[in-house]
Amino acid sequence: MNDLLDRAVRVLRDETAVQADGAITRQRIEAGWMQQRVRGRAMRRLTTGAAVVLVLGGGALAATNLFVRACPDNPGLTLARTARPEGHQAPLAIAPSAPVLMTSTADEAPAPPVTARPARPRVEVADVATSAYAAAHRAHFVERNWSQALGLWTRYLRLVPGGQLAPEAHFNRAICLLHLDRRDDAAAELQSFASGRWGSYRQSEARQLLESIATSSR
């Protein structure tokens, strides 16, 4: 038995040492790197936008505060001057409807110029595709909800029919169809893999599955 195990190990080692092309995998990896870069850019934009909002908001608040202190008699401002314990800073209540004329003097801190609007991250097509793919992947591999996964793979393929991950989505769609016992539809999807439309990607597996579908329906 020991000998047989050793033999089996050697065979497995030899069979798996075959040099594979891996071209499709490389394409998928490069697509993944690209998506990471897109996500990184979006995150940077979001962070920059948030920082700009904070800085501008903080500056505007400081300027308003200084302005209120500089013009205590301005009729447009109603300072809450109710009795308060010593040392306690009362909040400022600003009547929103009253017009406030900003007259800059040498003592006033000038309000920061509002020239640049905080950058809003653009919704990239790649982001939508990525989230659609992630949802489909979760339904398929985590929740194993085949009907939901089927719908989500189809949605992903409608969004990016020629996307880098389209071969994988098509194959996973076929697996969902198999699980739902829609063998004819699954066979139609698998046929494209077996015929080599996607190169060697999943080709042997698709052929095996097609054979098994044919056998089981006989």
Binding site: A17, G22, T25, R26
Partner: peptide, 30 residues
């Protein structure tokens, strides 16, 4: 990639899953 692919095939015993693992590893490698 050849080294990673061989190991993935041996560990998983499934070429297609091994390709997915290779992809997973290299996408997250940076």
């Amino acid at each position: 990639q050849h080294r990673v692919r061989c190991f993935a095939r041996r560990l998983l015993g499934d070429d297609a899953a091994a390709e997915d693992l290779v992809q997973d590893v290299f996408v997250h490698l940076p």
